[in-house]
Design a protein around this nucleic acid. Structure first.
Length: 189
DNA sequence: GGGCCCGCAGGG
DNA sequence: CCCTGCGGGCCC
């Protein structure tokens, strides 16, 4: 059973849950940019001083975006408090999808409000929703967020693997629709 | 401290 | 190659 296999892999420690083992691909077919599971050499609690450093370590490959994934599913997400509808209870997280915000020149600025609806048509939202379907966990990285007691004071900390329990559309605080994800931390980490 | 804008790396 | 995004620094 999948959960049994997952527990074995987790017990074996970091580095044993990669793209190949989880997706049933040969090693050569696994994407070197996107790895699922723990990243060898960067255990839970590892803190990076910047998003770029975190990206270099392949813990979260994208330097700006909060969801890193592809059609097969998401590898990792970052919680930085950039979305008003996020809730962080430590081992349970309500995460908001990407998009729907006013984008200023060249990107979304830190406190851009929601200005239109989000959608699962967005490839990043679709990727994370895919994890809910397949049961594959995502790495969770917490960035600085004054509102959350679970966030680091500074830097970006790898906080382990979470299962995406549900993915659905909901109405956000702004009144616009958001993609909502319910994440629960895997046990025994 | 806040706003502005430039830039990086991924993915299609 | 082009577009995008939960950075980040610099200038006011």
């Amino acid at each position: 059973m999948a959960m049994e296999r997952m527990r074995k892999l987790l017990a074996a420690g970091p580095g044993y849950m990669d793209d190949a083992s989880l997706l049933g691909l040969s090693t050569s077919e696994a994407d070197p940019n996107g790895r699922m599971g723990h990243i060898p050499g960067f255990p839970i609690g590892t803190t990076f001083s910047s998003r770029k450093e975190c990206a270099n370590a392949r813990v979260h490959g994208k330097t700006v975006a909060g969801i890193h994934g592809c059609k097969k599913g998401a590898y990792s997400i970052v919680l930085s408090g950039g979305y008003e509808d996020d809730t962080d209870e430590g081992d349970f997280i309500l995460y908001t999808g990407t998009g729907g915000r006013e984008d200023s020149f060249g990107g979304v600025s830190k406190n851009s409000p929601q200005t239109h609806d989000q959608s699962f048509k967005h490839p990043d939202n679709a990727a994370l929703a895919e994890n809910a379907r397949t049961g594959r966990p995502v790495r969770v990285i917490r960035g600085p967020n004054g509102h959350s007691p679970y966030a680091p004071e500074s830097g970006y900390r790898y906080d382990g693997l979470y299962k995406v329990e549900r993915a659905y559309l909901d109405k956000g605080a702004s009144g616009f629709m958001i993609c909502r994800f319910e994440l629960r931390k895997l046990p025994d980490q």
